[in-house]
Amino acid sequence: MKSKRQIQKENTKIKIFETAYKIYSEYGFTATTAMIAKEAGVSHGTIFVHFSSVNELLTCLIESFGADLALEIHDLTEKNDSIKKLLETHLNILSKHENFYIHLISEKSLLPEDVRMTLVNIQFNFAFHFNRIIEGEIQNHTVKSIPVYMVFNTWIGLIHYYLLNKDLFSPDEPLLKRYSLELIATLLELIKK
């Protein structure tokens, strides 16, 4: 059984993790660990008791988002679901992390290389499942025979353009909630036979 002290330690780590997620989602990656400590109600040094560096904290946050996406997408691919369902699930997960994700893609160049690589790996994982489903649909003649990377990049390009310009498309409300259906319908219209 865990001691009271161990439980307390774990709770502090969770608190730092959740606060960091909130702060980065709101202010982006220029936010400081001092801001996170203040909001979490812990001393600055406490953050580094639980995370050896800012990089480790960032990597943990991005990996947690990636794990969320990976789990849902994997289940879906196993069921050999449609591309429509895959796109819906993708946007559903991104929608849950919308502000965090917008900062991730717009401030990518500010992140250290190893942290950026974590993001690349998440995209790689999504591309793996995207490929399986698209290939299945091309074989079934339900999707046009377009190179998988072009279909993938058209999709990512489309949603990133909207997300990066949220101030123009949806300044006052979550963007994906407003545009998901239209974005999905448009991609399907372009690729379906």
């Binding site: 591309a127 793996f128 998988v148």
Partner: peptide
Amino acid sequence: NFIIKTQG
């Protein structure tokens, strides 16, 4: 090869 094929 897989990365090139799926993401270009």
